[in-house]
Write a protein that binds this DNA or RNA. Sequence first.
DNA 1: CTAGGGTTAG
Length: 591
Amino acid sequence: MHSLGVKCNEFAFPSVFKACTLTNDFRLGKQVHGTVVVTGFENDEFVLNSMVVLYAKCGEIADSTRIFDAIPRRTVVSWNALLNCYVQRDSFGEAVELFQDMIVSQTQMYGEGVGVNQTTLSTVLKSIASLQASHICRQMHALSLKSGFEYNNYIVNGLVDAYGKCGQSEDASRVFKESQTSDLLAFTSMITVYSQDGQGEEALKLYLEMQSQGIKPDAFVYSSLFNACASLSAYEQAKQVHVQVLKLGFIIDIFAGNSLVNSYAKCGSIDDAERAFREIPERSIVSWSAMIGGMAQHGHGRLALQMFNEMLKEGVAPNHITLVSVLCACNHAGLVTDAKRYFSSMEELFSVQPMEEHYACMIDILGRAGKLDEAMELVNTMPYEANAAVWGALLGAARIHKNVDLGSKAAEMLINLEPEKSGTHILLANIYASAGMWDGVAKIRKVMKDSNVKKEPGMSWMEIKDKVHTFIVGDRSHPRGKEIYAKLEELSEPLRKAGYVPMVETDLHDVEEREKAKLLYHHSEKLAVAFGLIATPPGAPIRVKKNLRICLDCHTAIKLVSKIASREIIVRDINRFHHFRDGLCSCGDYW
DNA sequence: CTAGGGTTAG
């Protein structure tokens, strides 16, 4: 047109720029920019706004901003284009800053809550979610209400996602419920929030609810569902969801595949995890890390290291998480020398600088192996302040190696760092008890009473078909309670013959000795195992999970039960898996 | 005239 000598007025340019933006034709756009200058329209705000959008879309943020800054009145679209530009390159902080300028400028120009639209809010919510900027969530929520976008699907989804990522799952759920949306993405976001918040039951319930409303899922939701199963340790559930994905004809992509590996591992079946792992077509570092970490948690240290070598052979570079898992694997297998080698060479070999987590892991390894001096040396020379993980590792080491001094020092630091946790007091009491320091035990009991620290009640679960059976110490409310207690009674004689002596001294309950022995014998994990023995077919593995660390007395007893009853018993406690088989445990009595 | 959801450790 221009080359034909036809005069072009300012009304044509925005449309031309728009066409260039839509077709991603940056080259033509630049040419037209030149024409704008030649024809003297470079001060027209409509022309300039359309140029901002063009340059932003092409990722030329400097040019875009330069033009943008020179426009006296910017359109919402220009602001949005620039905002989106920042989000595209993960500059979320800059996006939020730009938005704050935008609010000031647009409010001056148009009045409150008017100069932004749903695209603005949606883009900014995504930035807030990525930054986990919880303090701005509420403001954004208020602004959305004020602007009248409350029930817009994009905004609902954005708010759910942002509240969730900022750790405010209750607010996320309130927005979701009040919106009464039937949008697939909003459902997916809400399911993800629940699963990331450890509310696996809610996640699975919402998935059912979604289907009963006739909303068809897509492949996105499954990674979160598998995670929900993982957090519930619900093996049957994981299998059911897995089967359903296949039935619906969705391909298990890399995200869902990685979650599935993690889920099967966390549900106690490392074999299923490995099968799922082998079926992932293009395994990423996340897939490998999940598999290596799973094997480590199951106590298969050597296999985990083999897996790591296989990974290196395939040319996949480990990241900091992989290396935590590798160290963890060494820890479970008692491979101190290997751990030291990996730890000291990780920066040189894999360009991963040891972080706090790696130090904590290494300190745990040294401590468990009884090298308490070396562990302390590392604590004193590392470039970090010792955190709860480090003191926790030292406390655990002190318990295993019966070191009262280190134990009380570590416990003191831990109680300062996490005063609300009862586990620290309990562990220290165990250390005192095993050293025969009964006044120490009594003191802790008093401190716990005075400071109102409650021992978190121990609970164990067993999943049979799709029903979850819950047990707490001494509880007789289970429908098959009578049989469960009879089974334990029946086991007491063979247990005694096999050398089991109740460890009453480690129990902190304020009751008489005989009463203690009874409580001990009816710990939740023992009840769950007894139930497993009567409720599953002979020879079937028994899977139990517990909300705390498994107790020492139960660990001893269950080892013997696995032999007496010829059963594989798998207990997932808060830290790891214990595979009891033929009188032994996969953790090698280190936990 | 621009915009939304999923994966690994401790």
